[in-house]
Computed example of a mutant assay.
Amino acid sequence: MPFSRLALSAVLLVVLSCSPAAAEAAIGVAMDDFSYTDTSAEPANQTAAHERRLSAFMAALRRDIGEGGRYRLVPSAKDGAAFKVVGGIQKTSTLVQWAKVAVIDVGTRKLVMDKLYTFRGDNDESWERAEIFVSREVMAALATPAPVTLAVFEFELEDTTAASVGALAASDASYLAEVTGGVREALGHSGRYRIVDVGREAATAGALRDCGGCEAAIAKGLGADQSLIGVVRRVSRTEYTLGFQVRDASTGAVLARGDSGLRLGADYSWKRGAVRLVKDRLVESQQATDAARR
C-alpha cells in the first residue's frame, strides 16, 4: 500500500474513533420557545424588540446546550428526548424581568430543575447576560439525575442484651424516632432523594427486618422508587451497631446496604451514628457513582 494511502487510512481511523458516533450517544433534549409576558405597563410598545431578543435568547440557549456533543436538540420525546426544557420570561417593570425555567426528566416525569430568576435591564446586553446564566443552570441540571423517591421506614431496635424484656421502652422509642427523623432529613437535604411519607402503612407488617423484603412492595404502593429500612442492634448499654438496606420498590432487589460495625456510646448517640452511616455509605457513594458516569 502506498504511503499516502496508508497515512490516509490512519487518519480516518483516528477521526472515526474520536467522533461523537463512536463515543457515547448524545442525550436528547427537547426545548420549546419560552413564553414572554410584559406586565410593566410601560407606554411604549416594545413587542418587536422583545420578539427579537427572545428569539436570540432561545437560539443562544440551544447553541450552548448542543455545544460539545454531549446533548442533541430534538423536537420532542417521540424523537428521543430524555429531557424537556420549558420556561417563560415576564417583564414586571422598566428594569426588572423574571425568568421561570424548568427541566423535566421525560422517562420518570420528574422535575430535575424548577427555578425562578430575576435579571435587571431590558436591552440586548442584559438579555445576553441572562442567557449565559440560565444556560449554565440548565446544563448543571441536565447533568444531575432526578431525585429518587424513597420510603424511609421507622428504624427498628434489635436488643440482644440479657436485660431485654421484649417490649420497646418509651425511651428507646424516642431515640429510634430521632434516628428515623435524622436519616430522613439528611437524605432529603442531599438533593438525591425525595422522601415519601410512609404514614402507618408498615404498622401491620411487624418487624420489617424479618419480612423477607416486604418493605419494597409497601414502598411501591406508596409511589416510591426505593425503600429503606434500618436497624439499631443493642449489644450492651454502651455498645451498639447500625445497619440499613435499600431495595428497588419494583423488583425488590437490594440496591445498597451499610453496617457501622461496633460503636461505643449511649442511646442518644444512635442518631449521630445513623446519619453518618447513610451519608457515607449511601449519599456520598451514590454521588461518586453519578460523577463517574458523567
Results as ranks from 00 to 15, higher is better:
118 T>I: 08
249 A>E: 04
252 G>S: 02
16 L>W: 06
121 G>F: 07
169 A>P: 04
128 E>A: 15
97 Q>K: 14
96 V>C: 00
59 A>N: 10
200 R>S: 15
182 G>Y: 09
99 A>G: 00
117 Y>M: 10
162 A>V: 15
32 D>E: 14
127 W>N: 08
253 A>V: 07
81 A>D: 04
72 R>K: 13
221 G>C: 10
282 L>R: 03
21 A>K: 08
43 P>R: 13
248 D>S: 08
69 G>D: 05
86 V>F: 01
52 R>Q: 14
38 D>N: 15
68 G>W: 01
53 R>L: 10
129 R>H: 11
13 L>T: 15
57 F>Y: 15
47 T>S: 14
140 A>C: 07
283 V>W: 10
2 P>W: 01
244 F>I: 04
283 V>Q: 12
75 P>V: 03
19 S>I: 00
104 I>D: 02
101 V>L: 06
239 E>R: 13
216 A>D: 09
206 G>R: 05
55 S>V: 04
199 G>I: 08
147 P>A: 09
248 D>R: 03
236 S>K: 09
43 P>H: 13
9 S>R: 08
182 G>N: 08
110 K>G: 06
163 A>R: 13
40 S>Y: 02
282 L>K: 04
148 V>Y: 04
226 Q>N: 13
72 R>H: 02
131 E>N: 11
84 K>C: 00
